[in-house]
Every structure is written in C-alpha cells, then in structure tokens.
C-alpha cells in the first residue's frame, strides 16, 4: 500500500519532509504577521495555533525520516513521479492556462482526444468519437441543464444558441 508508514524512506521523501518544515515555518510567520500575539480572540489566534502545530509535527516527521534507512534501488522518476504522471500534470496545467482564451469546447475536445489517445492508444476514429461523446455529455449536463456558463473563448456559443432558438421559435409559430 502506498498510503502507509514505511520502514525506509522513499526517494525524495527527505526533501519533501524538509519542504513541509519550510512551508510550515513560512506560514507560521505569516500567521504571526496577521495580529501578532495580541489577544486570544484576534483573527490571527487560530492560524497561529494551527501553524504552530504544523511546525512541530513537520519537524518530528522530518527527524523520523532522517533516522530511517533510504531505499537503495528506488529512483524518483520511476517510483514517485513517472513520466506519465508528470505529463498529465503538465497537460492539466496547460488546460487551465488556455481555457479562458480558447474557450471550453476546443480546449476540452483537444484534451480528451490527446489524453485518451496517449493513455488508451486506440484508433484515431474511435478516439475522436469517444472524445466527442464525452464532450457532448458534459456540455449538455453543465452548460445547458445546470447553466454553468463555461468560458466561451473563440466560439460564439451564446450567439449560436440564440440563433438556433430563434430559428426554432419562428419555425414553430
């Protein structure tokens, strides 16, 4: 199980523990700068308590790491961050960056096509159809039924929808 406390440190674990200590100390300092030790009911009191707890526990965890033998054959980019995970994180990052400018429909379609192709390695036509199906499903549920206005970007969605509903309305009358 990857979730459990182990008897040796995994590659990068010591560094991670150390980073957590640094993060905790930084946040403790931030919490202190909200209101100092002014009073028990100040806005900074609770964050101070929480970050103090973080600093203490992070230090203990860090010391524990140093006492454990490190894993001999482990490799960070194999066991902890294999290329496929790194690539997927990067792709999602890219998704969030271009979402506003490109709009939801093109971004999501490209995302689905590329990731399914990359992970599932099916044929181009099958992948395209699958991506389209998923996209339509998500668009219908989020945008049309629950009216979550997804970024429109380069596709003038509302104009198209308005035009179509006008077309339908006049057609029906």
């Amino acid at each position: 199980m990857p979730h459990s406390q182990h008897s040796y440190t995994k590659p990068g674990e010591t560094l991670f523990g150390f980073l957590m200590v640094v993060l905790s100390v930084f946040l403790f300092w931030q919490a202190y700068s909200i209101a100092g030790f002014e009073s028990l009911s100040s806005p900074g009191a609770f964050p101070l308590a929480a970050t103090a707890l973080m600093v203490i526990t992070a230090c203990i965890a860090c010391v524990q790491n140093l006492r454990l033998p490190s894993e001999v054959q482990g490799h960070f980019f194999k066991e902890i961050l294999p290329p496929v995970v790194a690539v997927m994180i990067a792709v999602i990052l890219l998704f969030a960056v271009v979402l506003d400018t490109l709009g939801f429909i093109p971004t999501a379609l490209a995302f689905l096509f590329l990731t399914i192709k990359f992970l599932h390695r099916g044929g181009v036509i099958r992948t395209t159809l699958l991506s389209l199906m998923v996209l339509v499903l998500i668009y219908v549920v989020f945008r049309l039924v629950f009216k979550v206005v997804l970024p429109e970007g380069i596709v003038p969605e509302r104009e198209i929808l308005a035009y179509l509903s006008d077309l339908f309305n006049t057609g029906a009358q």
Binding site: L112, T115, L119, L150
Partner: peptide, 20 residues
Amino acid sequence: CPKGILIPLIFLLSIVGAYA
C-alpha cells in the same frame, strides 16, 4: 471501463467540477 478512458474522464470532470 479501461483506465485509459476512465482517467481522462475523471480529469475532465474534476476540472469542470472545480470551475462550476
């Protein structure tokens, strides 16, 4: 469902869900 399809779907759902 094959992981190669399920995982991209989870990713997209997570993204849209967070946005919503």
